[in-house]
């Protein structure tokens, strides 16, 4: 893939991630606990990592986090999504390419679990109130459910991107 095509695709995926992130913020959550949400924007991070690479996925994540906090949420939301997003990114970096691609949904679930663990950690540190660790249970269950969903979505999207001829990976 040419350098300009890589940059263009990275930029396009960043825009998609930001759009999904802002749009999801407008939907009331299905589960009214501890900020449980689908985390649809993580689909794009995972797709970027498989189709483009780790560096590009990191760029997509960074753009989404910074601009996402500008478009809504503010600083505390940024801290949340930044630590959660970073934890998920690290898990993806470790596992994409190690696990076979048919198990990409597994990467997605582990990333979602890492994301939720990161967010809860921030919540405990910020509030200084470890009682809220009871949420770890519901966040673990939610991480599995949302991770499976976003993982399957990622696998479908990767297949579509490859078929479109936009990528040769």
């Amino acid at each position: 893939m040419s350098a300009s095509r890589r940059i263009a695709l990275t930029a396009a995926l960043s825009a998609v991630a930001l759009t999904i992130f802002v749009a999801e913020g407008q939907i009331p959550p299905v589960v009214p606990f501890a900020g449980v949400k689908l985390g649809l924007a993580n689909i794009v991070t995972l797709v970027a990592m498989v189709v483009l690479g780790r560096r590009e996925a990191g760029a997509v994540l960074a753009v989404r986090l910074v601009l996402g906090s500008v478009f809504g949420g503010g600083f505390s939301a940024l801290m949340f999504s930044a630590v959660g997003g970073l934890f998920a990114y690290i898990v993806m970096c470790l596992l994409v390419g190690v696990l076979p691609e048919k198990l990409l949904w597994v990467v997605s679930v582990l990333a979602a679990l890492a994301h939720n663990a990161g967010q809860l950690l921030v919540a405990v540190l910020v509030t200084g109130t470890p009682q809220i660790l009871v949420y770890a249970l519901i966040l673990a269950a939610a991480g599995v459910a949302t991770g499976v969903f976003t993982g399957i979505a990622s696998m479908l999207l990767i297949r579509a991107v490859r078929r479109s001829g936009l990528s040769n990976r």
Partner: peptide, 24 residues
């Protein structure tokens, strides 16, 4: 590398997490 291993592990985490949480 087995799908089954992960499926069982995640199902267990999901059910345990949800069940324990609702119980508590």
């Amino acid at each position: 590398y087995k799908t089954k291993f992960w499926a069982i592990l995640f199902a267990a985490i999901f059910l345990l997490g949800l069940g324990l949480f609702l119980w508590l």
